[in-house]
Design a protein around this nucleic acid. Sequence first.
DNA 1: TAGATTGTTAATCGATTAACAATC
DNA 2: TAGATTGTTAATCGATTAACAATC
Lengths: 209, 209
Amino acid sequence: MEKKVSQAVIKRLPRYHAHLEELKAAGVMKISSKDLGNKMGLTASQVRQDFNCFGGFGQQGYGYRVSNLLDSIGSILKLDVAKTAVIIGVGNLGQAIMNNFSFVKAGFDLIAAFDSDKELIGREISGVRVYDVAELEDFCRRYSPDVGVLTLPKQFAHETAAKLCGCGIKGIWNFTNIDLHLEIDTVPVENVHFAESLMVLSYRLGENK
Amino acid sequence: MEKKVSQAVIKRLPRYHAHLEELKAAGVMKISSKDLGNKMGLTASQVRQDFNCFGGFGQQGYGYRVSNLLDSIGSILKLDVAKTAVIIGVGNLGQAIMNNFSFVKAGFDLIAAFDSDKELIGREISGVRVYDVAELEDFCRRYSPDVGVLTLPKQFAHETAAKLCGCGIKGIWNFTNIDLHLEIDTVPVENVHFAESLMVLSYRLGENK
DNA sequence: TAGATTGTTAATCGATTAACAATC
DNA sequence: TAGATTGTTAATCGATTAACAATC
């Protein structure tokens, strides 16, 4: 019966996590809300409010134990829960993600890739087998992956997302530059829209004139 | 002497732009704030407030002319201003972006790529020449690119960003999973942090239980 | 003209910041 | 104990929504 945590807070959690990992790697044992806020460009007050959405992780008069706090945030984000993912679309972007991105750090095991290109089907990329996209639904029904990663051409995004939802996918990580409208609104979609990001940068280039 | 427009509004502009492009492509001539809001999951009120940050684009009793509004938003985002970019790091991700991403749609001309890999230097990828990263500063001083795209390993991100700033770069599009702290705070940084996005998805997977 | 829909002001809601008692 | 810093409540600020007069 938790109170609803705002989107703004959730979106800051991964940043806290990254900064705390950095601190831990640097051998820092404790940190105050003031110092952490400084490092991240937030107020101490906000840092404390954020953490208190999930209960007190700190110690009055002392601060927060870095490795404690890191674990707590990781656990809120469910990074410690084993999850599986499949990727659909093994073009440049799909391969870039398969080769460079660490799914493991977020608790994900990438168990399969799908494409329609005969050249790719049957190959392995970073230890992940590429299957014919025609087998996607069979595979999903058999192995129930948690998340589908969409790195395919955008004209196929909607139908593929619908198929995944039909097979019980639990979330979609969308790299295509469209807004997905799913039938089932219990399936969360996270978007990585390069174009939007570059357009915001384009706008901001002019700001400091 | 414009009033300051909030970040929240700016971040919605590219979405308006994308939806309006879709409408235009579908041959829709006019749209009301109500219909556009519906399509995008916003209230009509918010749509009108957003547009009125920049002056009235609509016509009372009629609505907004799609192609008009599209152009106006494009112009606010400076998509119609010619800008140049260079990309630093021609690994999987860099190549994926060079091959698949349309810089042109945001008004950018990608004029050069840089890497340290001798195999890549001298090659052309999607019509863009790859130079030795040792030549980065020379190149920037000569050609004054507007934006630097960071797709290199994160351990080199800070020093490279600093060099770019030293050569007068106007903005940084950062794909490395670190928060950049620049000397010059007039240089905007836009981040595309895959890991943060996947972590938010990880969190949200559990929400609808 | 009547209907529709904007532009804009006012009301509400939510998120951030400030303040301070609790306590390590 | 005194100093530091949290947890938490109250105050402020900003963003969203509602309302409605203006007008096409």
